[in-house]
Design a protein around this nucleic acid. Structure first.
Lengths: 337, 337
DNA sequence: CCTTCGAGTCGAAGCGCTTCGATGAACGGT
DNA sequence: ACCGTTCATCGAAGCGCTTCGACTCGAAGG
């Protein structure tokens, strides 16, 4: 194994000089830098990560805590993870993969043992048990999603309020006057996720602003539940011409239920979905949709982390603007006779 | 930060004794062990990972190299990754996530810098450029999949030969006499993956053994290609009653093409798929299938790695037996009039 | 011309842990 | 009673790196 003293000897300098060439923390003459860099290349030198971590109290590793078993759409998680790894690498950091399973202890372990020097925590819930822990850990962290009490934490997510608004705005532009949001099953609203509520709030507020009639209905997954939801929707809102679906697993069944009810998309009903692009593209009628910008979230979270590690101030909350992609499922309202 | 000397002082022993309690590498009296463990608990001591790595030249981290952008079914990859992380944790190791993108350099980097002490490499291709590198790296590694020249490497995968055989055996038991394997697009056979060929070999050998007529056809993805493949298949093998599909993306289109050709599954045609269970269950007619045992592969690969790290001998090749799950798409051959 | 300063470099002191050899103590065998 | 063993523990020497203070030298400032 080649070490820093080997490089130093070959370049005719002291080990500390080599270190300074590597870190750039002190000025080095061009000539010396050159010789050192040459020696490094020739010897194929790589600093020993452990030694470095010990001496500098920086491991250059960030932890990524993933919900490896959750209901979140898996390919989206993957995109996110890929973005985190890639971005971390551009900042000379590596990524340690932790699962939600290990829970609190896992976080504490990697933090206390100085295995990592920052954390990215995915899938944060409204009342996430890890939040107090993260506060006390003394390591920079970024949360994907917003807990109820986010003060002093750095959080990032799609701006679901704006997403709700944007979907309504799109339908408004197309002339729709009566719209509905089909959301998550009731328990989700109660239990954990802030985003369901935020979407609904944006949706409702925008509808009011545009002077549209609007409704918000929860929807359980499964064809049976979808049919019931659609029945109820059409009964209670016979003039409905636009819906927004914020419920990936129920999306397919709902579309079939619309079909079953004799509604053609988009002729009779315009549909906007909140779902991954693949899903939107794969539907029988390609769906106008807003996707979770997973790659962007991943990239930005690492960037926030790096900023914090560098001692820079970062905003507590980062909300990424929704991007609505128009596809075939939305059309101007056909004036009903 | 609490360190080993703090624990030692509190327990009234020397640091080395604490270390030996932790590692179990020397015998310690029950009384002393007890006092030390108590102190550790009370102080909340965690050894500094870097210091440990430096002193012991073991980082207790394994690298997982994932193809984060590839065509491999993503949820299956996830399952695999989850199993790797979980199993690694049971052996007191953590997992560093690398992407294929970083390529050779990434492997060399984490190896040379002693960031990790072993590697799990997914998605190994027949002529994988990383193979020579892995040989020269001097770290234990486990490959998921088999390269052309696997000598001296530890590889693990589903036993595709046995899988081909098992599918045929299943159809044979049901009385089928003429079967076909619909495989990957032609380029796959040529380019990279050994498993396509191995499945075909097992399939053909078993068919011969059972005295069945058999054919192997490649199949490109997409509805168009699927229809052409099915047309050709029925034309060339009019007596066909069973097919095995080893091509996840083409599976849906193929089923539709069968339907379009007037074939009912399983009444007219029995279908066995090689695909994830979710996909098999989600089909219109739930498919009899063999799944890649991702979780098992992940677990076993880490176990192999740990054995190698412990200096134990491990087999070069580990082939996991296929498990065929019967669902609705296969049925006894209905004797044609 | 002497001081001051900054740029460039070195030496040495750790960072927190593991591990090796050494040291006692206890113990059974003769 | 003595010796060889084994068991339990300690002290000290690193592991390979970073970093702090100190030093030198030439240029700039008075």
């Amino acid at each position: 194994m080649v070490k820093i003293t080997d490089v130093a000897r070959r370049a005719g300098v002291s080990p500390s000089t080599v270190s300074y060439v590597l870190s750039g923390k002190r000025s080095i003459s061009a000539a010396t830098r050159h010789r050192v860099e040459e020696s490094i290349r020739e010897l194929g030198y790589r600093p020993h990560a452990g030694a470095r971590a010990l001496a500098s109290s920086r491991s250059n590793v960030v932890a990524l805590v993933m919900p490896l078993r959750s209901g979140v759409h898996v390919p989206v998680q993957m995109q996110f993870a890929a973005a985190v790894v890639t971005t971390a690498r551009t900042h000379d950091h590596d990524v340690l993969l932790l699962t939600q399973e290990e829970g609190d202890d896992g976080l504490r372990r990697v933090a206390d043992s100085a295995l990592v020097d920052a954390l990215v925590v995915m899938d944060v819930q409204l009342n996430d048990a890890r939040v107090p822990l993260l506060r006390s850990l003394g390591l920079p962290s970024v949360l994907i999603g917003f807990p109820a009490e986010a003060h002093g934490l750095t959080c990032i997510d799609l701006d679901f309020t704006a997403t709700g608004e944007e979907c309504v705005a799109h339908l408004a532009r197309l002339g729709h006057r009566s719209v509905a949001l089909l959301g998550s099953p009731p328990e989700v609203y109660v239990r954990d996720t802030g985003f369901a509520r935020r979407t609904a709030a944006g949706f409702t507020a925008a509808a009011r602003r545009y002077g549209m009639r609007s409704a918000v209905l929860p929807c359980a997954p499964g064809p049976q539940a979808a049919r019931e939801t659609v029945d109820r929707l059409l009964r209670e809102h016979p003039d409905l011409t636009g819906v927004v679906v914020h419920n990936e697993p129920a999306l397919g069944p709902l579309l079939e239920a619309f079909h079953g009810a004799g509604l053609r998309v988009p002729a009779d009903l315009s549909v906007v979905a909140l779902c991954p692009d693949e899903q939107a593209e794969g539907a029988a009628v390609p769906l106008t949709s807003v996707a979770i910008p997973a790659a962007e979230v991943g990239e930005r979270s690492v960037e926030l982390l790096m900023a914090k590690l560098a001692g820079r101030e970062v905003p507590d909350a980062t909300l990424l603007p929704p991007r609505l992609t128009e596809r075939a499922s939305t059309a101007p309202r056909t004036p009903t006779t």
